[in-house]
């Protein structure tokens, strides 16, 4: 009986995450009967690498959403950071250092945005909307659409082999996810993020410098975006100048489908990761199920709505 009650309690605490997980299980069950070739190590490896940028950025976005803010400039930052990584590598910088340069550039963009939000009190959607347009068009203006070609030979896969790179990325992803989850739960800074999002006024009264918290999560997300951009660029020989179109939508959708409240203060890392897995699986899953490309987008939309509805059913039982 104790175990039963305990299970119920756990199910209630994690109802949102269970809702997303249930949707994923449902999708995979359909795939199991409809497109079994989906379940191969190769496919999961490819899907992992393709969705790694979304995963990395969504960790930062989760923190931003937890503080009650939003950042819609990550897609544009991603494009600029990719190009910066390429330019740095072409200028003769060691590849790892070029990756760090992209991170630093991302952190700078994040810091600018975060500074405006935190210290000048301009709403985050306005700030990041402005940055989204200005960065994207600024990049378009300076490159005119040209790609970065002739990258140094060690650029692709960071001079590792393809499979070693994938393993390294898996380790990195697990480490980042674990660090974010643990940081949110056990670190003072992590609790400050949640407190700021739950009630900024209350957080300030308890001595939390909420403006610094907000500033930091934006800068951190920028750095993560730079990292994601550099790692994504390293899968290829060339860097296009229009990378990351629509990345912000994918990331925000993953985080909110994962159960984070857009008003701040509530949401988990596990939920965000599940959200990334669900939305990252859907596209290719539909191809494997033989759905026509023309109807794919409609079904994706329906699945987002279904995930929200399942989420709601979980909440109603409480």
């Amino acid at each position: 009986m104790r175990i039963f009650e305990e299970t119920i309690r756990l199910a209630r605490t994690w109802s949102r995450e269970i809702g997303v997980a249930a949707t994923i299980v449902l999708l995979y069950a359909v795939l199991f009967f409809g497109g079994r070739t989906y379940f191969s190590a190769e496919n999961f490896g490819d899907l992992f690498l393709a969705n790694l940028p979304v995963l990395i950025v969504s960790l930062g976005m989760l923190l931003i959403i937890l503080t009650g803010q939003i950042d819609i400039s990550v897609g544009s930052q991603f494009a600029v950071c990719s190009v910066i990584a390429g330019v740095a590598a072409k200028a003769g910088m060691p590849v790892a250092l070029a990756g760090l340069a992209a991170c630093a550039a991302g952190a700078l963009f994040g810091a600018i945005g975060g500074g405006l939000v935190a210290f000048l009190r301009i709403p985050s959607i306005v700030v990041t909307l402005a940055m989204m347009i200005a960065l994207r068009d600024g990049l378009r203006w300076s490159t005119q659409g040209a790609w970065i070609e002739n990258l140094p030979p060690g650029f692709q896969w960071l001079s590792l082999t393809q499979s070693r790179f994938t393993t390294a990325m898996a380790v990195l992803a697990v480490a980042l996810v674990a660090a974010t989850a643990a940081g949110l739960r056990y670190l003072k800074a992590g609790r400050a993020v949640l407190a700021t999002g739950s009630s900024e006024a209350a957080a300030r009264i308890t001595g939390i410098r909420t403006d610094r918290v907000v500033f930091s999560v934006f800068a951190l997300t920028g750095a993560l975006t730079g990292l994601a951009a550099a790692l994504n660029a390293m899968r290829f020989h060339q860097i296009p100048s229009n990378a990351g179109l629509g990345l912000e939508m994918k990331v925000i959708a993953a985080v909110v489908v994962g159960g984070a409240a857009i008003t701040g203060g509530s949401g988990t890392v596990i939920g965000a990761v599940l959200g990334v897995i669900l939305l990252g699986s859907v596209g290719t899953a539909l191809t494997f199920l033989g759905v026509s490309a023309y109807w794919e987008q409609a079904i994706q939309g329906a699945i987002i709505l279904a995930a929200v509805a399942i989420n709601l059913a979980g909440r109603r039982r409480e």
Binding site: M249, I252, A253, V256, V257, A261, I262, T263, S292, Y294, W295, E296, Q297, A298, I299, Q300, G301, A302, I304, L305, V308, A309, L312
Partner: peptide, 21 residues
């Protein structure tokens, strides 16, 4: 009473998808 951002993010994809379909 579902959050407007996520609902309309879903219908944003859905409506365009139906039009394409």
């Amino acid at each position: 009473r579902l959050p407007p951002l996520i609902v309309t993010l879903g219908t944003y994809t859905l409506y365009r998808g139906i039009a394409e379909g």
